[in-house]
Amino acid sequence: MIEVKSVTKKFGSFTAVDNISFTVENSSIYGLIGYNGAGKTTLLKTASGMYRPDGGKVLLDGENAYDNNEIRTGLFYIPDDMYFMGNSTVEGMARFYSGMYESFDMKLFEKILSIFSLDKKARLRSFSKGMKRQAEIAFALASRPRFMLLDEVFDGLDPQKKEICKTLFLEYMAESECSVIISSHSLSELANLCDHVGLINGKKMSLDCSIDDIPEENKKFRLLLSQPVSKGAFEALPLKELEVKGNAVFFTVMGKENLEKVRKAVALMPIASMDELPMTLEEVFLSEMEDKSYDLQQIFG
């Protein structure tokens, strides 16, 4: 289990991650979503024990992660920016990881390589970005880690390889009870993979929920009122994307508690008809990002 508890990380006076908390259970894949520069990589590096948090802590199976060699023997971190030694071959790098991870399974490694159709004698520097990713995923899985931290791991992979990787992660997780955090700025990459998602927005965690709960806890409302109601009547409610057009009112509500509040308030209004539609993960993401988005139409006047 990975427990991120009120983690804050600052670089000088700049706060990269502000008081973020979430938990990744065993046999769970946690999707960390956020726009570029949101703090996902910083959070993963803090979780990997590389960065010392300025506030809070990261616990791996209850042990503090920072510079903890024992607990990290069961951790594999795939950074966005991959590194392979000098002129090493796939096989050479595998030997490196087999030296560093006692649990490294060479047979499993070769098996994964064959799935990816990668030549173990080939030099890694001659690989494309996607091939390097595949090799890195093979190193990670063959190390049989207890915790996996994957930073933009699908970046550069073609759709077919993405699906293979997802399958491998899911199978490995099911078999090993591994806790995985996978970060991405692309929601589609995480679809059908994560069981939980966290959305980092403005250096803070603005959403932390189970994938299953997303449609239940995040709704789009379409109301048709029997008589016009001023916009002010809705402004006190925790709504997003509020739009009032005559008797028609459109808005979204995010979060279980908010939903309850809104339902109670709307019930008191003169409703002709009401549609309550579940939001997709993508809609939730866009809605959360709304505050940060630019009005592109205004840019060129």
Binding site: S48, M50, D67, N68, N69, L75, P79, M100, Y101
Partner: peptide, 10 residues
Amino acid sequence: SNVYLSMGIN
């Protein structure tokens, strides 16, 4: 440092 500082060696 991403590699060396994230492995099981302090």
